[in-house]
Amino acid sequence: MSTRPALIVTGADLASQALDILRDFEIVYAGKTPTEPDLVALCRQHDPVAMIVRYGKVGAAVMDAAPSLRVISKHGSGTDTIDKDAAKARGIEVRAAVGANAAAVAEQALALLLACAKSVVPLNARMHAGHWDKATHKSVELGGRTIGLVGLGAIGQRFARMCDAMGMTVLGHDPFAKDLPPYIRPVDLDTIWRESDAISLHCPLTADNANLLNAQTLAACKRGVLLVNTARGGLIDEDALLQAVRSGQVAVAGLDSFAVEPMTAGHPFQGEPNFVLSPHIGGVTSDAYINMGVGAARNVLAVLESTPAAAA
Rank of each mutant, 00 (worst) to 15 (best):
L7I: 07
L7P: 13
T10V: 04
T10K: 00
T10N: 05
D13R: 13
Q17D: 15
A18S: 08
I21C: 01
L22D: 14
A30L: 01
K32T: 15
P34M: 13
T35Q: 12
E36K: 13
D38G: 04
L42V: 08
C43L: 08
R44T: 14
Q45H: 11
P48R: 04
V49K: 12
G59D: 06
A60I: 00
V62E: 11
A65E: 02
A66L: 05
R70L: 01
V71D: 05
H75W: 15
G76F: 02
S77V: 14
D80W: 06
I82F: 12
I82H: 09
D83C: 05
A86H: 11
K88H: 12
A89M: 06
R90C: 04
A97V: 02
A100E: 13
A102F: 06
A102Y: 07
A103L: 15
A103M: 14
A106H: 02
A109D: 06
C116R: 04
A117M: 00
K118P: 14
S119F: 15
V120D: 00
L123H: 10
H128K: 15
H128T: 03
H128F: 12
K134R: 14
A135C: 08
T136C: 13
H137L: 05
S139F: 14
L142S: 13
G143P: 05
G143Y: 05
G143Q: 12
G144W: 02
T146H: 04
G148P: 11
V150N: 01
G151D: 01
G151R: 09
L152V: 03
L152H: 08
G153T: 10
G153L: 04
R158Y: 06
R158G: 09
F159Y: 05
A160Y: 01
R161C: 11
D164R: 10
G167K: 01
G167N: 07
G172C: 01
D179L: 00
L180K: 06
P181Q: 08
R185Q: 13
P186N: 05
D188H: 10
D188Q: 12
R194Y: 01
E195K: 11
E195V: 01
S196N: 03
A198N: 05
S200W: 03
H202W: 06
P204Q: 07
A207Y: 11
A207N: 13
D208E: 14
N209E: 08
A210R: 13
N211I: 00
L213H: 05
N214L: 07
A215K: 03
A219N: 08
A220Y: 00
A220P: 06
G224V: 02
L227C: 09
V228K: 10
A231K: 11
G233D: 03
I236S: 11
D237Y: 12
A240T: 03
L242A: 09
S247N: 00
V250S: 06
V252I: 10
D256G: 01
F258T: 08
F258K: 04
V260I: 13
P262N: 06
P268Y: 04
P268R: 12
Q270G: 05
G271R: 07
V276T: 12
H280A: 06
H280S: 07
V284A: 12
A288F: 01
N291A: 01
V294C: 03
G295C: 09
A296E: 09
V300M: 04
L301T: 01
L301Q: 02
A302V: 13
A302F: 11
S306R: 14
A310P: 00
A310F: 04
A311I: 14
A311Q: 14
A311E: 10
A312D: 15
